[in-house]
Design a protein around this nucleic acid. Structure first.
Length: 658
RNA sequence: GCCGAGGUGGCCUAGCUGGUCGGGGCGACGGACUCAUAAUCCGUAGGUCGCGGGUUCGAAUCCCGCCCUCGGCACCA
């Protein structure tokens, strides 16, 4: 038995193409497994807890549950449309999930893997509550950038433990927060270092996931704070005013959803999660490898549950060659950009699966989409199926299945390729295999020339058609996991129920096949449609760029607080061990100040000497890599490259900029 | 700087346990055909397989050094 899961979609935003990179391949995988006769349970559900949902709901005047309701329904609708069919799709704010979570946390406590610790937490005196995670805004203790309570999202990207953030403010009301002592609970992750090192050696899955995880474990494992001050979530056993951290309860959804799925399917979930009789395979995005390869197995081990056998991580998604980014507009929404535009769901499944290897970056481009649909799905696959069915239907109606042995051999080869590819989670290889078979079919049809034979030698014509029909029938089965809607309908035309078919049925050719009037399997994508979609995307990107520029306004007084002056660089020296940093001595007229600037990639020490630059003279001094920096050199930021500002005419050093 | 993944004809890409090492797809060009959604089929297009060394009888494939791209981290006052 196998259990396949997908990373739970967070129920506070709409489905986009990035999500599909996990769900479509997982669904394809499950369908192939079932085709091979494997017993599979396939589950997923909405991740309903956590601070962002609480904050979002509040901002929209909704209760958290109401917000989750919206996106829970939304995702299910998307999955229905794309034929991503889970045996059970749950949500983590349900009773059964809370029960399972509490049971597991209790077990972790009983076994001594959880301990309380007083930590200093941000508290908002105005809102009268503790500010967990993203309720807090402040300064990152590592890099000094503006940061959220749980993560330095603008700066170094580090994960922040509760209480670490500096200068915390309340995100809701902006009031400076005070630190108060609070008891929280920690999971002894550090105790699992040896276990994890060993476990990760045995864990299967894609290399991208395993490599990351091994590296992390090798470095350092810190104990993990697993409680939060929130109302919304799973109550922490024995401390009911605390809630379990969302990353503790979310993966437990894999278990609680399996319970429900098994109830439905008449199976015993314990065989999977307690007795370890099944293979557990997690499909995830690269961004949550840490949780699935480290936190999660440690938790399961602590609570005496079965361990996952494979973690399959997909590569990143790009849009028109650029890094996927909702805020910058590089996004393709599944509903408004695809389904609502009338595009065929099967075509998107094919694109996602066939663009590249599962581990590599997938680029979504409308131009490429058009090419793949028109040149591959239509010209190769659809055309072959249609020309054969149409010819058979018009000339024979029913065909005696006298099939060329060479054709049977080709089908067998394609099946083998698919089976091998699926073992490796290489869905592109699998889909290439049936496309090659279709291509072979086109050659076979072309060379046989049944349209000529039919004139004088109908029997030979029928034999040729029979062989091609055998290929069509095989294609309906082999391509079904990727193109379920289309292939189901194709199957019906030749009396085949592909939903009940097994892989080997592709070789069990019936004596006769009756062909019904066929339809065109895929509609051609027109250039105008693609142009329209590209325009839509472009406008979205432009709008996003503008949004960034429309900043809040600053008063002249506020600006006046900045002491910006012209200085002359008199010395420049590289800082050891750093690629970007230079130590500069700057003459500000009357005083020499030292600055550390990240400009070494664009400027050499020599060319800097004597250069006039613009300097922020009253910035708070800091130490960077152990070097004092008293002032800040201003520069234009061109995609992360620093371009220095310099006065257009020679001016005395020390003069004020305003 | 550290870790990971990569650099193969215009573009995407297979091969990377060393000897059919130069494949496939798209695009382009020429031809054939008409059953099929101007779809299909056949043929052609000369790319130092990132750079420089080395090992070997022989390397895209192994070793060393270097360059570049992407992702993660450090860091850019």
């Amino acid at each position: 038995m196998k259990l396949v899961t997908c990373g739970l979609p967070y129920a506070n935003g709409k489905a986009h193409i990035g999500h599909l990179r996990t769900y479509i391949p997982a669904d394809v995988y499950v369908r192939y497994l079932r085709l091979k006769g494997e017993d599979v349970v396939f589950v997923c559900g909405s991740d309903s807890h956590g601070t962002p949902i609480v904050v979002n709901a509040e901002q929209q005047g909704l209760k958290p549950k109401e917000l989750v309701d919206i996106y829970h329904e939304h995702f299910q609708e998307i999955f229905r449309n794309l034929k991503i069919e889970f045996d059970f799709y749950g949500r983590t704010d349900s009773d059964y999930h809370h029960e399972r979570t509490r049971e597991i946390v209790k077990k972790m406590i009983e076994k001594g893997y959880v301990y309380p610790k007083e930590i200093e937490l941000a508290y908002c005196p105005n809102c009268e509550r503790f500010l967990p995670d993203r309720y807090v805004e402040g300064i990152c203790p590592y890099c000094g950038a503006e940061a959220r309570g749980d993560e330095c999202d603008q700066g170094c990207g580090r994960h922040l433990e509760p209480g670490e953030i500096l200068k915390p403010r309340c995100k809701i009301c902006g009031t400076p927060a005070v630190f108060r002592k609070q008891k929280h609970y920690f999971f002894k992750l550090s105790a699992f270092k040896d276990f994890l090192e060993d476990y990760l050696e045995k864990l299967k899955g894609t290399e991208n996931a395993l490599n990351y995880a091994k590296e992390w474990v090798r470095k350092e494992l810190k104990d993990w704070c697993i409680t939060r001050n929130l109302e919304w979530g799973v109550k922490f056993p024995g401390e009911e005013d605390l809630v379990v951290y969302v990353w503790v309860d979310a993966p437990i959804g894999y278990i609680s959803f399996t319970e429900k799925a098994c109830e439905k399917l008449g199976k015993d979930w314990r065989e999977i999660w307690i007795e370890g009789k099944a293979e557990i395979i997690h499909f995830i995005g690269l961004d949550i490898v840490y949780h699935h390869c480290i936190f999660w197995p440690a938790m399961l081990k602590a609570a005496d549950y079965a361990l996952p056998s494979a973690v399959v991580a997909s590569g990143m998604v790009k849009v028109e060659g650029k890094t996927f980014s909702k805020s910058r507009g590089y996004v393709v929404w599944v509903d408004e950009d695809y389904l609502n535009e009338g595009f065929n769901p099967d075509c998107l499944r094919y694109y996602v699966v066939n663009y590249t290897s599962h581990q590599k970056d997938l680029n979504f481009s409308w131009e490429v989409y058009k090419e793949k649909v028109n040149n591959e799905l239509i010209a190769t696959l659809g055309n072959f199926i249609y020309r054969v069915l149409h010819f058979a239907w018009r000339n024979f109606g029913e065909v005696k299945m006298n099939v060329d042995g060479e054709v049977v051999e080709q089908i067998r080869l394609a099946m083998e390729k698919i089976e091998e590819a699926i073992e490796k989670w290489e869905f592109k290889e699998a889909s290439d295999a049936f496309m090659e078979l279709a291509s072979y079919g086109n050659v076979y049809f072309q060379n046989s020339q049944p349209w000529e034979l039919i004139k004088n030698d109908p029997e030979s014509a029928e034999r040729a058609v029979a062989s091609c029909l055998a290929l069509v029938r095989a294609l309906a089965i082999l391509a079904y996991p990727v193109l379920p809607s289309t292939m189901e309908k194709i199957g019906k035309l030749i009396g085949l129920d592909v939903r009940k078919a097994k892989l080997e049925d592709a070789l069990k050719i019936p004596d006769k096949i009756k062909v019904e009037k066929p339809f065109v399997p895929f509609e051609k994508i027109e250039d105008e449609k693609i142009a329209k979609m590209e325009k839509k995307l472009k406008e979205r990107i432009e709008k996003a760029e503008k949004g960034v520029e429309e900043r809040e306004l600053v008063t002249i007084e506020e600006f006046g607080r900045l002491d910006i002056r012209i200085g002359r660089i008199i010395e420049a020296e590289k800082i050891k061990g750093s690629k970007k940093l230079l130590k500069l001595r700057i003459d500000l007229g009357g005083e020499i100040k030292q600055a550390v600037a990240g400009i070494a990639e664009n400027y050499s020490e020599e060319e800097l000497k004597g250069k006039l630059v613009v300097v922020l003279a009253n910035i708070k001094p800091a130490k960077i890599r152990g070097v004092d920096s008293e002032v800040m050199v201003l520069a234009a930021d061109v995609d992360g490259r620093a371009i220095l500002l310099t006065p257009e005419k020679e001016v005395p050093v020390g003069v004020k900029v305003r």
